[in-house]
């Protein structure tokens, strides 16, 4: 993997062009960035700021939306209508995605989200998508065998529960509002948010169970 251990011909200091077992793409991406910055095509500060933004994103924001929806039916209605507006309402950054809508799991209907073409995902609210979400088997089987996939992820649904698989696109993305767990009645909104996992907002898991009282 290290065909780059040559002297690459300029002597200004910068990060090592290759590290350990990196794929060949790694030094190539760094070289691409250098080249585009030199040409004035993009600005290094812009690249830096976008990296900082991406690493700052986490499922915690989505969890706050879900927890609020669990305790406030009017907010839930707004989240189902327009998750971007709902996020702004809580002071959260909905990111650049054009349209994000909430979908609600109930006793009768279970939603799960896939992007069959690539990887569309509400990154601003959930962080970068996990590897499996972008994997070829998930993208195939979420459509051909959703119940099998759910079972593999540990979700067993009764036969009479309708499964709706939502295919994300560049134009519309989804945030699943999972079912509020039994036994969470007395919990604060913040405590509720701690039960809401990333995978439950993709629709491939149930939220965490509340810790037993006492």
């Amino acid at each position: 993997m290290s065909e780059h251990d040559h002297d690459h011909g300029h002597d200004h200091p910068h990060a090592p062009i290759t590290n350990g077992d990196e794929p060949a793409a790694a030094p190539r991406v760094r070289a691409l960035e250098e080249l585009l910055v030199e040409k004035g095509v993009i600005a290094r500060e812009d690249v830096r700021a976008r990296i900082d933004w991406l690493v700052s994103r986490s499922p915690g924001d989505g969890a706050r939306l879900v927890a609020r929806a669990w305790v406030d039916p009017a907010f839930k209605a707004r989240l189902l209508e327009d998750a971007r507006a709902a996020a702004l309402e809580l002071g959260l950054d909905p990111g650049p995605s054009p349209v994000v809508v909430g979908v609600e799991n109930t006793a009768d209907v279970h939603h799960m989200v896939v992007c069959t073409l690539c990887s569309c995902y509400p990154r601003a609210l959930l962080g970068p998508p996990p590897d499996w979400y972008k994997s070829l088997p998930y993208r195939s089987r979420a459509v051909s065998d959703p119940r099998g996939v759910l079972s593999e992820f540990g979700v067993e649904l009764d036969d009479d529960v309708e499964v709706r698989v939502l295919d994300s696109t560049a134009d519309i993305r989804y945030l699943v509002i999972p079912r509020r767990p039994d036994g969470s009645d007395g919990m604060t909104e913040e405590e509720l948010a701690s039960l809401v996992t990333r995978d439950s907002m993709i629709g491939v898991a149930e939220p965490a169970a509340p810790a037993p009282v006492g």
Binding site: V114, T116, L117, D131, P137, S140, S144, F153
Partner: peptide, 17 residues
């Protein structure tokens, strides 16, 4: 690239990085 329903029984590798 259009993987929806693509025939496969491959297990989903859930390891993350």
């Amino acid at each position: 690239h259009d993987r929806g329903g693509w025939p496969t029984e491959a297990r989903i590798d859930r390891s993350e990085h």
